[in-house]
């Protein structure tokens, strides 16, 4: 109540030279906001881990806000985009999830999380591209080091088994 916001003029506007340079780079689209803010990869990873924990606890809205913030801060962060995709996926926003996975894959075509999850979503939609994504996910993560990689592996095996059943049925029917 009654709070007065003072304009401090030149004092408040005094910025370090480096900061100005970074802001200029951001304005020109040469730097991300994360770089302007001086956020390091390690810090981003720490924030992402909080997002993962929130998602695991079922607090998907909070996880979404966090990952959206990370992506806004650094759209080049493939991991954050894929993680945001998984949150969208769990929220039922499938188109947005696919868009995030695709954006991640545009920067890193061999990202296992994006590949596996996009593959599964494509298959749910009945699109054949899903096979390729899943198979690529298995190829880039052959040892199942990520949950998505393990899921992709299991899906490939499952599809294979179902397909074989189909083939057998086709073979026995006259």
């Amino acid at each position: 109540m009654g709070r007065v916001i003072k304009h401090e003029g030149a004092v408040a506007m005094r910025m370090e030279h480096g900061e100005v340079q970074r802001l200029r780079s951001f304005a020109r689209g040469e730097a991300t906001w994360a770089e302007v803010e001086g956020m390091t990869f390690e810090e981003a990873k720490a924030i992402a881990q909080v997002g993962c924990d929130l998602a695991a606890a079922g607090r998907l809205e909070e996880a979404r806000i966090l990952f959206e913030g990370l992506v806004a801060g650094n759209p080049k962060d493939v991991g954050a985009r894929a993680a945001l995709g998984t949150v969208y996926q769990k929220l039922g926003r499938l188109e947005e999830a696919i868009a995030e996975y695709s954006a991640a894959l545009a920067r890193d075509p061999l990202h296992p999380v994006a590949l596996a999850n996009r593959g599964e979503l494509y298959l749910r939609k009945g699109e054949r591209q899903g096979f390729t994504d899943l198979a690529n996910a298995v190829e880039v993560d052959p040892h199942g080091e990520t949950a998505a990689g393990r899921r992709a592996k299991a899906l490939v095996r499952a599809i294979t088994l179902v397909a074989v059943e189909k083939l057998k049925e086709g073979g026995t029917s006259p």
């Binding site: 991300t32 994360a34 770089e35 803010e37 001086g38 956020m39 390091t40 990869f41 810090e43 981003a44 990873k45 992402a48 881990q49 997002g51 993962c52 998602a55 695991a56 996880a63 650094n74 759209p75 080049k76 962060d77 493939v78 991991g79 954050a80 894929a82 993680a83 995709g85 998984t86 949150v87 996926q89 769990k90 999830a97 920067r107 890193d108 075509p109 061999l110 990202h111 296992p112 999380v113 999850n117 599964e120 990520t146 949950a147 998505a148 393990r150 899921r151 592996k153 299991a154 899906l155 095996r157 499952a158 088994l161």
Partner: peptide, 30 residues
């Protein structure tokens, strides 16, 4: 397979930094 699928539910949220040559994990960060 059923067991594997059960163990690995869809859309598990995980942060996997890029390891590719085209995009470095630290790209876009200070």
């Amino acid at each position: 397979v059923a067991d594997d699928l059960k163990k690995n539910p869809p859309g598990k949220t995980e942060y996997q930094a890029s390891s590719g040559t085209s995009a470095k994990a630290t790209d876009g960060y200070a």
